[in-house]
Amino acid sequence: MITYILSLVFAVVWVAVTGSATLHNLIFGFALSTLVLWIVRDEMGARGYWRRLGRILSLLALFLKELALSAWKVAVLVMSPRMDLKPGIFAFPLTVTRDFEITLLANLITLTPGTLSVDVSEDRKTLFVHAIDCSDIEATKRDIANGFERKIMEAFR
């Protein structure tokens, strides 16, 4: 059921992106998205899809907010006459385990104010993060763990 609704949404997106709102194009988009969803059908088997969708959307909202905030913070930092920098790289212990979640978390960290993910250790347990302000690392770690990491767990577990 949910797959059909999702492919309908994709079809509408297809119509919007291709820019010709005809019936033929809608049907073609629907067929195309059904095909795409059929290809990834194994990953789609999870339950509670709507609830999850809501959480993904809230993750997206958080992402946009943090992006705006971080761009603003960089702007303020750069324009301040005396830059007070304490840059450094710290290790962040990961709770999420799957590659996909780590990727998402790393991307979100890069777009949070003052942090930029550099590398993941081979055993996928540590994420190395470069921070512009390393004066209070514990607080930064706590923010990431309670903010993004928990949201990702909620959305994809």
Binding site: L85, K86, P87, G88, I89, F90, A91, A106, N107, T110, L116, S117, V118, D119, F128, H130, C134, S135, I137
Partner: peptide
């Protein structure tokens, strides 16, 4: 992320003001 990882692996140093490098 890719660029930072490559640069750090290859050994481009952090600036002198840096306070720590756990990596």
């Amino acid at each position: 992320h890719l660029l930072a990882m490559a640069a750090h692996k290859v050994g481009y140093p952090l600036c002198a003001e840096s306070v720590r490098d756990e990596m």
